[in-house]
Amino acid sequence: MLSTDTFWAFIGLVLFLILMVAVGAPRKIAGLLDNRTNRIRNELDEARKNREEAQALLAEYQRRRRDAEAEAESIVEEARKEARRLTEEANAKLRDLVERRTAAAEAKIAQAEAQAISEVRGRATDLAIAAATELLTKKVSGDKANQMVDSSIETVRQRLN
């Protein structure tokens, strides 16, 4: 048994393990493992902290987005109200303009009618005077006729105008 290679390999392994324990390798390995565990734990804590911060930022951005959307909706609604108000004002001004222009046109028409009636009356007066003058001239003669014609013409003129 002392001559086999396996036996000597086993003895070498045992001596190596004893040497490792004597040097303090298990404590160093345990310390390294503890350090690694602590570092991993710290990284996990930092990752959790970063995740919580990211979630808080996400919530803040979502709140800001909702606020911005609400503000945009408010602005759009105000713009719609303003557009309706401006449209109503423009329509009212247009109605007033149309009414004023219609009234002005009606006034011009009434004035033209009055002028036409006046012209027709004037023309009718002139024709009536001319006809009366001709009739009286043919039927009445002498000074009395001239005086009567002049008086009649003057009366007709006064009554027709």
Score class of each variant (00 low, 15 high):
Val120Ile: 07
Gly31Val: 00
Asn91Lys: 13
Ala104Lys: 13
Glu89Phe: 06
Asp45Pro: 04
Thr6Gln: 14
Leu15Gly: 04
Thr102Glu: 13
Ala92Val: 07
Glu89Leu: 11
Thr4Lys: 11
Lys93Ser: 08
Ala103Asp: 10
Ala54Thr: 14
Leu17Lys: 09
Phe16Val: 02
Ala103Pro: 04
Phe16Asn: 05
Leu19His: 10
Ala22Tyr: 04
Arg100Val: 03
Glu43His: 03
Asn161Tyr: 07
Gln115Cys: 03
Ala110Cys: 03
Glu43Phe: 07
Phe7Asn: 08
Gln147Tyr: 05
Ala9Gly: 13
Gly142Thr: 10
Arg159Leu: 09
Arg157Thr: 12
Lys81Trp: 14
Arg27Glu: 14
Asp34His: 07
Val120Lys: 13
Glu82Ile: 09
Arg100Ala: 08
Ala145Asp: 05
Glu77Asp: 09
Leu32Gly: 12
Ser141Glu: 15
Ala107His: 02
Ile117Cys: 00
Gln158Tyr: 04
Asn38Pro: 00
Asn161Cys: 01
Met20Asn: 05
Gly122Pro: 01
Asn146Leu: 05
Asp126Val: 02
Arg65Glu: 02
Thr102Asn: 09
Asp45Asn: 13
Leu13Thr: 14
Glu60Cys: 02
Lys49Thr: 02
Ile18Phe: 14
Arg121Gly: 00
Lys49Ser: 07
Ile18Pro: 01
Ile129Phe: 15
Val76Trp: 02
Leu44Gln: 15
Arg41Tyr: 10
Gln55Met: 13
Ile40Gly: 04
Arg66Leu: 00
Ala9Leu: 12
Arg80Gly: 01
Asn50Asp: 15
Arg27Asp: 14
Lys138Ser: 13
Arg100Trp: 04
Ala105Gln: 12
Ala103Gly: 05
Arg80Leu: 07
Leu15Glu: 08
Phe7Val: 13
Asn38Ala: 03
Asp143Leu: 14
Lys108Val: 02
Asp34Trp: 04
Arg101Leu: 13
Val21Asp: 06
Glu89Ala: 09
Leu13Arg: 09
Ile40Tyr: 08
Asp45Met: 11
